Amino acid sequence: MKHTDKDLLLKGIKKMALALPLLFLSPYLLTLSFLNKDNYMFYLALILGLIAGAGAIYLCFKGINTIIKSMFG
């Protein structure tokens, strides 16, 4: 009977913890950018919001994948 690899589980939880701030930051930056369309900050906030959103999706995927590997792999 296999047991959970605790070190791998901890790595997955750390990745999920890093994704959590990005999950809140990306919608905020995107909303901020679309509220300031006439300002030069529109492009900066839009690019940062898209990068934060992509980073959150990537870290969530890798974190869940690592947690699954620690339990079943």
Rank of each mutant, 00 (worst) to 15 (best):
G12Q: 03
L30P: 04
Y40G: 10
Y28V: 10
F34S: 12
I13P: 00
Y43Q: 07
K15M: 11
L10D: 13
L20C: 01
L59P: 04
I67E: 09
K69L: 13
K6F: 09
I13D: 09
G55D: 04
H3R: 15
F61Q: 03
L48H: 04
M1Q: 06
L23D: 05
G55I: 02
I13F: 06
F61V: 08
L35V: 12
M1W: 08
K6V: 12
F34M: 10
M41W: 14
P27A: 02
M1K: 14
L25F: 01
A17V: 05
L20E: 04
D5T: 10
G12W: 03
L8E: 12
S70F: 09
F42L: 06
T31F: 15
Y58S: 09
L23M: 10
S33A: 14
K69T: 14
I57Q: 06
G49N: 04
T66C: 09
L44T: 14
C60S: 14
A19F: 07
C60Q: 13
I68L: 11
M71C: 15
D7G: 08
L25D: 00
Y43D: 13
L48C: 08
G63E: 01
I51M: 07
G53F: 09
G73A: 06
K6R: 15
K11S: 05
P21K: 03
M41E: 15
L23W: 06
M1R: 13
A19D: 07
A19W: 12
F61S: 05
L59A: 02
F72S: 10
L29S: 03
L32E: 12
Y58K: 06
P21A: 01
F34D: 15
N39P: 02
A52Y: 01
Y28D: 04
G55Y: 01
K2V: 08
F34G: 04
M41T: 14
I68H: 11
D5N: 15
A54F: 10
F34C: 05
L59W: 10
I57R: 03
G53K: 07
C60D: 12
L50Q: 02
L9Y: 13
G55S: 09
M71N: 15
F72D: 10
D5Q: 09
I68D: 05
K2Q: 11
L25W: 00
H3N: 15
L25P: 00
K14H: 04
L22D: 01
S26E: 07
Y43A: 05
I67T: 15
G12A: 03
L25E: 02
G63A: 06
L22A: 01
S33Y: 00
I67F: 05
I57W: 10
G53Q: 08
G53I: 00
M16H: 03
L48M: 06
P21V: 06
N65E: 13
L44N: 08
M41I: 15
P21H: 05
P21C: 03
A54E: 05
G73K: 12
Y40Q: 14
F24Q: 06
A54Q: 02
G49K: 01
K69A: 15
T31P: 00
F24I: 11
L44Y: 12
F42K: 06
T4N: 10
G55P: 00
M71P: 08
T66S: 11
